[in-house]
Design a protein around this nucleic acid. Structure first.
Lengths: 231, 231
DNA sequence: TTATATACGGATGCGCCGTATCCGCTTTGA
DNA sequence: TCAAAGCGGATACGGCGCATCCGTATATAA
């Protein structure tokens, strides 16, 4: 999967670039230049483009690593005895990751993505997310109409809050603003709790996994693939 | 406030540009070009730059209108007898506006803003938002530690969900995805409700109005103003 | 009606930026 | 020792948004 065989120095630089890519994209988002990444890795731009045909390829490689981390979190969640604790663990850990990695967050919201790669990782992770939600629902700790797609949107919501905070200046006398998103995570968690008598049912149905998938996979930008139906 | 005196055609074009600006920014966000706006208004680019020194000026003028609309909603909310109904009305109406106007949404999250203008509109609206929250809190229909800044962040969260949905493709067999954000609004509203015995208190304190203001006013981009303290 | 200030259109200049390549030099490893 | 493989980074290229400029047209007041 890592091509055939690279000379020792080449392989090292490849690893350096991957590492640097994670850091740079985490800090500055996917808009960062491959040149930036190369510089950060301490190699020339040429080297960067020799190891990865283009920026997309590097992003794909990074994404593969990140999906493994998310999968690990999901498995950890599912291994917990208590479904509610599992749910909380998943959301807290997944969000902690996304909040500290702007690139990862941008991938979650579907911006700038190569559809095939996106599909692949979704097919791997979505079922696990659904199980996390399902377990909690079956145990009666969240409302009966809550689904796995709800967990995704709640994360998107929290990430956007965190992004706004991070884009702003430091606030004096408040060292905890980086965690402000957690305040709202817990408002939402509380809102997911089974309805009390007087609470209204939710006004719009959740997306199915397939619908969410379709929503995020095909970012309208439409470079190619779709669109052309031949004939 | 509208300068001194404009020739009849000039004044007409100015109005057209304002109108077109609202439409274009609403659809495509504040990144849209002033050239786009001019074309949409049916006037030449030159005219656009003669009526508004630059894009920022046009945005400021539009923002002024939008603030009036938001103020009206807030006053309507405060005029309602029931504090909960007032809260819901404010959030639903304000969100409906932001969701249908990408430019307005971008202004709320503080992106791309001229600080003085931002300050001005916040000073006008923030007290009203605080009163909406305060009323509901005093009436005991939302948790005791909920504040006006929470209402802002909940809106930011809903807007981000809506943005993701709007950026994606149409989903077949679902005509209501434009309203999906409302599902999560109501999760959050439910979460704002006073705590039941078993619910944990929120893990992070809300921002004060002043802190939120500082966060959104000074988008780090720092063209000038701040930074230089002389001496 | 005519003169002049005012306004109009839109081609165009300018500067910026991100992608990717190319080529002379260096390192690896058989 | 000496190809083959790799390296650095200057730079070509293309795209884009902002704003200006100037020849032409229109409003308005004498």
């Amino acid at each position: 999967m890592t091509d055939v065989k690279l000379r020792k120095d080449a392989a090292l630089n490849r690893a350096r670039l991957l590492e640097a890519g994670r850091e740079v994209f985490a800090q500055r988002g996917l808009d960062a230049t491959l040149n930036d990444v190369a510089h950060h890795a301490g190699v020339g731009v040429g080297t960067a483009y020799r190891r990865f045909a283009n920026k997309e390829d590097l992003i794909d490689a990074i994404r593969y690593q990140q999906d493994n981390e998310l999968e690990a979190i999901l498995n950890e969640s599912l291994a917990m005895g208590d479904p509610w604790d599992g749910l909380v663990l998943y959301l807290e850990k997944s969000l902690a990751l996304h909040v500290s990695d702007r690139g990862m967050a941008e991938l979650l919201t579907g911006r700038r993505v190569r559809p095939e790669m996106h599909d692949q990782s979704r097919n791997r992770l979505a079922p696990l997310v659904n199980r996390v939600a399902e377990r909690a629902r079956d145990a009666g700790v969240i409302r009966a109409d809550a689904t796995g797609t709800d967990l995704i949107f709640l994360q998107i919501a929290c990430i956007s809050i965190s992004t706004v905070v991070q884009d702003g200046p430091e606030i004096e006398e408040r060292s905890d603003t980086r965690d402000l998103y957690r305040r709202y995570l817990w408002v939402m968690l509380d809102g997911l709790t089974p309805q009390r008598g007087d609470t209204a049912p939710l006004p719009v149905q959740a997306l199915t996994t397939g619908q969410l998938h379709a929503l995020l996979s095909d970012p309208i930008a439409g470079d190619n693939s779709h669109a052309a139906r031949s004939t």
